[in-house]
Write a protein that binds this DNA or RNA. Structure first.
Lengths: 342, 342
DNA sequence: CTAATAAACGAAAACGTTTGCGTTTTTATA
DNA sequence: TATAAAAACGCAAACGTTTTCGTTTATTAG
């Protein structure tokens, strides 16, 4: 806290009472125009700005919202945060960003800190590891507004904003099929979150819709939690695929890191893309066109997702009194961007 | 603000006074062990956590620090933020991240908001556009601790933590020279910040040290502020280079986006890297090895930079009383990672 | 001219803490 | 036994707001 000039200071200087100053600055009808004028002038001249803590304490609100994401180090996440940031600063809420690093424990720690910190609401994209949502619901029961975004779960009942992962996966798979690929592998993330099953289901649906038999051996999961593990899992999966009697001629990968790391690994292992194996994956990296080769991607409207989630949360916060009405689940459309890798 | 159980509640429940509760929880010597025990037990059972706002108001501290960066959507920035996040959560400070989007006005707005918000200190990596540091120094004069990181400026006197950009540029250029490139262009960012001149000087020094004449026409600047402009500037620069009578056989680029976008553009324009022109650039992207071709980079210790900057700021905050001692400027070593593009 | 009304402002409580100091009770010292 | 000291706790002010409810003065209606 640095803030210097207070209502008291102004009151003393202008020989008025604190309440008069406060009312003047809040444009109360109780105060004469002349007084208001005088107060406002002095306040501006001395760079008065109300003390956030005092105001918050009085009003029982902190005008801050907590945001929990897996990691900052990720284009997709950064874009969502950008969206969140835009609407929250517009509505003059501060955001406190915390990282779960895909760990359920750390996520729990983040939530505890945010709750204790007195945020007015929480925006969360759960960690991959998370299976237990009881703490989250307990926060909700305690009256804390909550919005889940990006990675959804039906273990919690509130507003949810995500991408249409089923459709995205479906479209990507169809794209591969229509491009002539016959044997399509699917690399997924190992998580209990719906994001994973949705994509798997989209993939399956596309296959059945095109009379292609679903081969479970073509689906592998990778541990997302840290870069080292991911690389290891991925390398194993790729080698496994390539050792298969009916070796896949295309891979559809779910997940930002998975897609780009997969591409890097395929290169490293000497496979030519798309000649040896085609690749399309979920990712929002702006470097997709600069990759070797340019990577076909399923792109999610990350910015909009963040914006919408923040709007939903703020509306929830600001209408805390009325009945929660009905909670919505919004699914934003993804788009397939075809590039050289398929 | 969600927080429910307060000192008063505990006091009432235990038939003690508020101050006794407070002192118990703060482990004061004035309170008997039995009482402390009882209070602690009750507090834990009912998930008491002190109200951040009230505490902050009382102590005149908010235990939060403001961080201003150009943009979230950037690997390098994300890594620095990660570093900042680690040490600040460890020391139980909240961080408020704001984006300047390379605009001096928006940066100013961020700073005003943070100051008004009552942060205990500010961590800033100035916008490219910023030339006027007077507002920053005025904040400093008002007693707000400040640490500048990443992008340094000598227009402000405080702790500074950055990379050794001169050395990084020098090393990159030497690498190109030693790899046999004769005519080395330099793509820089158009900014008044020292980050730009340091890199330019490193480049120049490497040339003179190897008896290569410095050709001003090989140095171009690009507007970093938005993606569209950057692409435009870059394309113009590249075409300009390639139209030169003595066309460069290598490019050393400064700046994250510039390096990766330059690679993408060279590809798009049909130039082969490194046959037609080699490329090395400052960037921390984890996709460098997956690019087309794998991009040689100058890598900055972003995480450490963030950590160090945060440590410096916190120490500044917590020793606000004593004389500011002497301000340091720390330059962290960069490393050249050679890949296929050179 | 009196009484009611409006206009303009101030006093004080409240939000949840922390902390200096006063008060009571117990214990130790002379 | 009288007294000083220590131990354990409560009171109340303070941090900077907002807001309710007076209080004062000026204005208007009857």
């Amino acid at each position: 806290m640095n803030n210097s000039v207070t209502l008291k200071d102004i009151a003393k200087a202008l020989n008025l009472s604190i309440s008069t100053i406060s009312k003047s600055l809040n444009d109360s009808y109780e105060i004469s125009v002349e007084t208001k004028q005088k107060v406002l002038e002095y306040a501006q001249k001395h760079h008065y700005s109300p003390n956030r803590l005092a105001k918050g304490l009085k009003e029982g609100k902190s005008r801050s919202i907590g945001v929990v994401v897996c990691s900052l180090d990720n284009h997709f996440v950064a874009q969502m945060l950008d969206g969140i940031d835009r609407v929250s600063t517009e509505k003059s809420y501060q955001i406190i960003i915390m990282q779960s690093k895909e760990s359920q424990d750390q996520e729990r720690a983040c939530l505890e800190l945010l709750y204790a910190g007195g945020v007015d609401g929480i925006l969360i994209s759960p960690a991959c590891e998370t299976t237990d949502f009881s703490y989250l619901t307990s926060l909700q029961d305690a009256g804390l507004p909550l919005v889940v975004f990006d990675r959804l779960s039906d273990q919690i009942n509130t507003h949810k904003v995500g991408a249409d992962n089923f459709k995205g996966a479906y479209d990507a798979t169809v794209h591969l099929i229509k491009s002539g690929y016959k044997s399509i592998a699917h690399l997924n993330t190992s998580t209990a979150l719906s994001i994973s099953t949705d994509r798997l289901n989209g993939y399956k649906q596309a296959l059945t819709d095109h009379n292609i038999a679903y081969r479970p051996e073509l689906v592998r999961s990778c541990d997302y939690s840290d870069a080292y593990k991911l690389n290891k899992d991925l390398e194993r999966a790729i080698k496994y695929y390539m050792g298969l009697p009916l070796r896949p001629d295309a891979i559809f990968s779910a997940g930002d890191q998975i897609s780009t790391r997969c591409l890097a690994l395929l290169n490293k292992l000497g496979y030519r893309i798309p000649q040896d194996v085609a690749l399309i994956g979920f990712t929002n990296t702006d470097l997709a066109d600069a990759l070797n080769p340019a990577l076909s991607t399923v792109h999610q409207p990350a910015l909009e997702m963040g914006q919408l989630a923040a709007k939903k949360l703020i509306s929830l916060i600001e209408s805390k009194d009325d009945t929660p009405a009905e909670y919505e689940t919004i699914k934003l459309q993804t788009s397939v961007l075809v590039r050289r890798s398929t």
